[in-house]
């Protein structure tokens, strides 16, 4: 019997778990060489997730309700894990600082696990409600989630920064393998720039879509407002670097705050009233 997309995506949840396990083991048991296989496991997880998402897309067409797999909370969580994995691999390939994975893969795994295991989240392929039938759906969701994934990685790096900053001189053991503070700071900055660009694009595509669907590009609905709050925090963070004495720790705290805002935009908003029923469980 051929495999269904849900089965494939359950498998990729386990692969992400395995990657996170290797990275955590590297960190906890102070064995940096464990990050070598971990990298390939992340790559495998991304491949399986890609296949799962594509298959889901195909399945939706077979059901006669074809649409991109970006239309409900389950699909968006999977897509988030996918973007985080892809972006992490890119960072790993470009900067070769494998321990960052220890702070990123658990986030991707948690997203997948929440999507697969939470009893409140259905993994059924559902038809699109009229409001979501728009070409802007893909542009909006994809840009937003690339932004979120970049912020997740920046958050991982900032957490490392704050841990390392407690004892920057210590260079023995695993702490010696954590990148230097100024490198972490620069990498975080690069990630936040990328995230900011995509969050901006996400807010803009959302606004254009809202204008073509409801006739107003901005209506201060809680999800919109929270994405703007997130945007304000990261804009503040970009400017904070321009101020003397505001590098390193303060900027890292702002990055953590920004990611908290991302999480709230994503999940917390469902607790509030609003238009974006889309993210609702």
């Amino acid at each position: 019997m051929p495999m269904s997309s849900s089965q494939l995506l359950s498998i990729s949840t386990f692969v992400f778990a395995l990657a996170a396990f290797f990275y955590m083991a590297a960190l906890i048991f102070k064995k940096p060489q464990l990050t070598l296989p971990a990298r390939w496991i992340v790559a495998a997880a991304v491949v399986v997730t890609t296949a799962g998402l594509l298959l889901r897309w195909v399945e939706s067409y077979q059901m006669g309700i074809g649409h991109a797999p970006l239309s409900n909370l389950y699909e968006s969580l999977v897509f988030f894990a996918w973007t985080a994995g892809v972006l992490y691999l890119f960072v790993e390939f470009k900067y070769k600082k494998p321990l960052i994975g220890a702070f990123v893969t658990p986030i991707a795994f948690l997203a997948m696990a929440y999507a697969s295991l939470s009893p409140n989240i259905s993994d059924r392929i559902q038809p699109l409600v009229p409001a979501l039938k728009s070409n802007w759906l893909i542009a909006h969701v994809a840009t937003c989630f690339f932004g979120y994934a970049a912020f997740a990685i920046a958050f991982g790096m900032s957490s490392m920064y704050l841990i390392k900053a407690r004892n920057p001189e210590k260079s023995d053991g695993i702490m010696g393998h954590i990148p230097k503070l100024d490198v972490l700071d620069e990498l975080t900055h690069q990630m936040v720039l990328f995230g900011f660009l995509f969050l901006t694009a996400g807010i803009i595509t959302g606004a254009v879509w809202a204008n073509s669907a409801w006739g107003s590009y901005w209506s201060w609905d809680p999800k919109e407002t929270w994405s703007l709050i997130t945007w304000f925090v990261y804009a503040a963070m970009l400017h904070a670097r321009l101020m003397r004495g505001w590098q390193g720790k303060q900027v890292a705290y702002l990055s953590v705050l920004g990611f908290a805002a991302v999480i709230f935009t994503y999940f917390g908003v469902n607790l509030l009233p609003g238009l974006h029923s889309y993210g609702k469980v």
Binding site: F232, V233, A236, L242, M243
Partner: peptide, 24 residues
């Protein structure tokens, strides 16, 4: 001053929360 910018951006972020908690 860029300091003012940071204060303003964070104030906007903080106060915007109110309207998402109290229905408008």
């Amino acid at each position: 001053s860029v300091k003012l910018t940071i204060v303003l951006l964070l104030s906007l972020a903080l106060t915007s929360i109110i309207g998402t908690v109290i229905p408008q």
